[in-house]
């Protein structure tokens, strides 16, 4: 799988570390145990279009938000996480 790193260009997935699906961190002051544990453990693991966080560990060390199809491994978008709109 090739991941088009926004800084380095298309690079082999071996250079990256898969981090997680993109999940929103609940507000720690007010989160219920259900909300917090859903954030910790529950993942959609969708067959099809997924949005994930990857780390270009053996490259620019930037966290990259990758949109790909988990059935075909076709990557449709890769953006720097630090440039994402704050959720």
């Amino acid at each position: 799988m090739l991941i088009p790193c926004p800084l380095c260009g298309p690079r082999d997935a071996l250079e990256f570390r898969f981090v997680d699906e993109t999940v929103r961190r609940p507000e720690p002051q007010s989160a219920s145990p259900e909300q917090w544990r859903s954030y910790l453990y529950l993942r959609a693991n969708r067959a099809g279009a997924v949005t994930e966080l990857w780390l270009h560990r053996s490259g620019c060390r930037q966290y990259v938000v990758v949109e790909r199809d988990s059935l075909t491994n076709t990557v449709t978008a890769a953006r720097l996480a630090r440039k994402e709109a704050v959720s």
Partner: peptide
């Protein structure tokens, strides 16, 4: 290191 950068790049930009 990964953990620090994750906070800085994804949570507390």
């Amino acid at each position: 290191h990964d953990w620090m950068e994750r906070w800085l790049q994804t949570q507390r930009r």
